[in-house]
Structures are given as C-alpha cells and as structure tokens.
Design a binder for these strands. Sequence first.
DNA 1: ACCCTCACCTGCACGC
DNA 2: TGCGTGCAGGTGAGGG
Length: 277
Amino acid sequence: MPELPEVEHVVRALRRAVLGRQILAAEIHLPKLIAPTSPSALNRKLKGSRISGLGRRGKFILIELDSGRVLVVHLRMTGQFLVLTSDDSLPPHAHAVFYLDDERRLVFRDQRQFGVMRLVANSRLSKTKGIIELAPEPFSEDFSVGYLKETLARSRRTLKTLLLDQTKVLGLGNIYAAEALFRAGINPFKITSELSARRVERLHQAIRDVLRAAISGNSTSRINLENPNGFSYGEAFGKVWQVYEREGQACFKCGARIRRLTHGGRSTYWCPRCQRR
DNA sequence: ACCCTCACCTGCACGC
DNA sequence: TGCGTGCAGGTGAGGG
C-alpha cells in the first residue's frame, strides 16, 4: 500500500484502535521480520508494555511503548495491520501477532515479506540507521523551497529518481512522484540541477499538494483495521490518478496520450505535452 | 557520491 | 486448464 499518506492513515487508524492497550505477548511467525532479534527476545522485551503513542517518520510507523522503547515498522510493499477479535481466524501471511489486554489481537500481515520491524530505545530513535538519513518531513518548515533548491542543485540525477530517494525528499513513492511531477508540469527525466528556480517552487508546492490531498481525502474512514480487505489502494481516494497507470489514455488537461517508460525497473508515467523536457 | 542491476517474495493478469 | 512472462505502491546491497 504505502506511500506517506497511506502510512499516515494507518497510524491514525492504529491510534483509534490500539492506543492505551497493553501487549500481553508477541508472537513472531517469520523471524526475518525482526532479525537480528529473535522472536523470544522480542516477546520478552514487549510483553507487559502499554502502547502509549502512535507516530510516523516518513514511511516508518512508530508504535511507542511506555517501556521507553519504540516498535519501528516499515510496511514496504504489502505490509498491513489488522485488529482481530477473539473469534476471528488468522489470515494468510500473518507474520506477527500481538495479544492485547482486551481479548483482541493486533496482527501484522505481509504477503511479500518485505516489511521490517525493529524495537529501539526511544532515546536512540533519531540516531537509528534508516531514520537518521531521512529528509525533513514534507510539511515541516525544514522542507522549504530553499532546501529543495539546494538539494536539486547538488544532484545530476533525474527528478523521478531523486523524488523517490527518501534521504532527499521524504514521503513520495512511485505514484505520488509521478503525480507531483505532472502537477508541476515537469518532465520526469529532467536533470535536477537544471531546473529553474520557478519550477523548483512549483515542484515544492506540487509535492505538498499531492500529499495533502491524499492525506485529507475521504480515505481516512476507509482504512478499517477490523476489515482491511475492504480497503483497496487504487480506489481509496475515490478518484483516479492523473497519470499513474494511465498509459495510452488521454491526459485530463490536454488530451495527449499518457506515456509510460520503465526507468530503473519501475514504471514512470507522464504526459508528453504537459511535461515537456 | 552516483548509477545500474539484482535481490528480497507472493500473487495476479495476461497471452499462448 | 496449465504454464510462462511481466508486473506490482519499497528499499538495500554490491559492483562499477
């Protein structure tokens, strides 16, 4: 599922569902999910602690515990949380099960097994590898036009590649990178350092607009941990992407056919007229 | 510091 | 029906 907006929705849903609950036990069925920690060691450290907060840093989910530790979770491609009641049976690919003090279970499921989970001390979170390198949060003051200008000026990569680099611009994935570039009217294959100041400003605005629209869309209520199957990414926001997955179809702005190229193993979509080089 | 390719996995849609 | 191929929203390692 997840780019930043989806992760944000998961965090909000978790907050509603499990904030304040105590973890009685943690069962890990896929050891590599939490490697190098062992399932028994994780259980020892987790059991008895209470969930005191739910947060997010980039696409990482932060499950804060009253023990002074944080369970850091990355959903990668297919990771999902769901909350099961006592008579629900475990779905396929349920790799982690947290038994809560209200008879329910918080379950982490992940079809492709790319997701990762790590328990770290709260005080060391900001120094943790994977977190420390992240770019500023897109809605923070640190992610300014000036920051983006400097970052783009220092690179000779293409915009599409750079927008996916979480240490440069935080929160976009393959869909929203394409959507932000379309919104800004910028060609994905443009070299970042060659972007005019005016275009950097437009891109900065477009990144925030695209993320904000996805976060504030009506999808919040549609992420339902009790019924995660009812949620599907593509339809989540009740609207179609402007360019993503629209190869060959008419651009909503100008009518030209949307193009697609595989670039670094991933699809890039753009409108050849609205996003000229 | 960058670029590229491959790797990690399962499952789905497609064409033959 | 079955089998092969390509593709999927994310990242990290390793080689150049």
